[in-house]
Design a binder for these strands. Structure first.
Lengths: 207, 207, 207, 207
DNA sequence: CTCTAATCGAGACGGTACGTCGCGTCTTACG
DNA sequence: CGTAAGACGCGACGTACCGTCTCGATTAGAG
């Protein structure tokens, strides 16, 4: 992927993260943009081949064709780079997860969620089933909890805190499993159905 | 804990792991036993304070009051040491998880599971909520899948593979959450009830 | 000194060094002159505080309030900048050193030398006792040798090559020591006397 | 020199310098001795080819066939390594320099000094005329001043402080120049004579 | 009650990755 | 054109752990 002439457009959704310390200032230099992009693609490419925590920053740079020291002009750590790639994706997904409750029907909500994932299948497959799975699930859960803190709990027999954990975990695991299957083996509707049945009868069931 | 005169008896359940290369020969020397024990305690002690992957072997040795090189006479890697501590515990837990299906009632099965965890609260709390959480969950899931492969699926709307994942994950997350609470806030029965309600209405529900 | 409104006039004697590659073209732009001057002052200012070889080009630029890249439009290296500052000074001093031999008396020659140094006390003190001492002495000796090569030796018991080295070194060390003392502790005449006595009885003594 | 089967015995005179931080403890391990020796030889070998300050620690390690990180188990900086090599040599030389004053005659004292240098010609030639010349002269002067601080001044017209500087400098420069000549061009006696004549008529002359 | 072998502590070593810094070149945009 | 701003490739810096190793000291446990 490193030398790809057709850079993955999904990467563009992740904003350049500028703002604090070592991040770029305001996308001026064309070289900086190219380096940042190359680093993103390189990490994704490596994640398809080995676990995140045994990918070194030097690996990423070699894959990206970028000098080692240059990495730090874009990100503080490799976790930072992963965040850059993942944060916006997770955010959008969590928006959808939350929207399920207000959807016309739960079923429709789940379907929207699954459809979104399906549209970004390659990226999400890499993120969840590639080498960064554990980190992604943690980040997912973290964001879910932040978001769930402001909404009212659903039922009383299940402590809301635990409910959030279980719901987020179930959705994440199901989608991860789904993306691990060959494309087309399970349709969007099938997965949405499974999620609906699993969650609506228990976690989000009323008392 | 490093200089404790009252070694945690739960650690003894984990066999000394000897057998292959660098492990000791046959539990002969009393010094070797002492070193091995000290290492186990040291790792658990450190896990209460920081994540597993930023604990170094040197940290463990310092905590255990054991020379660095001596570590390798007991374990090949720190992951090996963690396994030594955790494997048998997870095995027993998985036996209980599996036994739920054949229990007099599901409820009774869940209760046995929770009771077991409760008896080993400190150890399990460290393992699941200490710094090795991610590794433990992965190991748990791995063992669950190995075990589930030989038993018949329960219902047809949920692919058995996914069922295993979700069941194992839900149980693990619920227990981890429970152990994170102050002792006594939720009784063994309460958690067993929650698990029963969550799982029996969905994952292990018949068609 | 960095923000001084009264730039040291002595710096002006050093020509802007243009001629080869990266140097400026022909003193056209007023900004270029200002930058060049600021760089000179900045280096001298820094030399009062730390050794030459742990002053970085970036230090100089920061001190001068000049952009890093701009440095290279004036000098190739920081050694080049030091040369710009020092060369003409050393040249004049060496002329005087040489003139001693043709002076009315040796004593008068030494006195002229010391008087010249005294007039430029601050600059010379920085150059010799600041962070660039070693480099300055080397440059001094180099120029002395170039100059001495064309004049006849004085006495036969002392190899002329060695005579040059010793004379140049003695003068340089004596002046450096003198400038390290509080101003006024030793008069121009006292130092000239010392130099005269040291050199005339040995190095420049006839057979 | 790096692969020499006949390691320079003069290097052994420099004690292993242990005492403070990263230095070795008490010459236990044979490997440590070998590494230390290799580093010394490597630096000397490199000093014959290029100036000290453009020799990198990596150069030294490569030349010595020693891993980069190992360097720091022996010395804190490359200056430290140079000191290790030079300190004892300079010390001995300064002892001789000092002994000149108490020698049967000055002439005899100078002769002892020159003879000593001549015996260690290669080493001293490298130290003074190799890439570390400036550093060596500074160290020489520093030690001379420390030593001279405790002895009575000789004459009154020359400030004792300056006398020390000039004497040390003259001796150092003369020897450096001598060692730069082909061996045999000037005899030990000839140089001793020059030193005697230069110094006894001026710096160490009585009032 | 020795004596021999396992175990240990101490730490040197080659390695790999870390994150930082300064270099000199270059691109970009401004005045 | 001269600057400010700063990205970039480069390569040395010094540090931290890794796992292997050589060394003695000591201390079992078998003879």
């Amino acid at each position: 992927m490193s030398g790809s002439t057709k850079p993955n457009p999904e990467l563009r959704v992740a904003a350049p993260h500028r703002g604090q310390g070592p991040a770029s200032s305001s996308s001026k230099d064309a070289r900086a943009v190219r380096s940042g992009l190359a680093l993103r693609e390189a990490l994704l490419s490596l994640l398809e081949r080995k676990p995140f925590d045994q990918i070194t920053i030097r690996d990423i740079c070699a894959e990206a064709g970028v000098h080692y020291a240059t990495f730090f002009r874009h990100h503080q750590t490799k976790e930072g780079l992963l965040d850059d790639i993942a944060r916006s994706q997770i955010e959008q997904l969590n928006q959808l997860t939350l929207a399920i409750r207000e959807a016309a029907s739960f079923e429709a909500g789940f379907q929207a969620l699954c459809a979104y994932v399906s549209e970004h299948r390659v990226l999400w497959s890499t993120l969840l089933n590639g080498g960064a799975g554990a980190a992604m699930r943690e980040e997912w859960l973290r964001q879910s909890q932040k978001v769930a803190a402001v909404v009212a709990p659903i039922n009383s027999w299940l402590p809301p805190e635990l409910g959030t954990i279980c719901a987020a975990t179930l959705i994440a695991e199901t989608i991860a499993w789904w993306l691990g299957k060959p494309e087309g083996e399970y349709s969007v509707e099938a997965i949405a159905g499974i999620l609906h049945r699993m969650l609506s009868t228990s976690i989000i069931a009323p008392d």
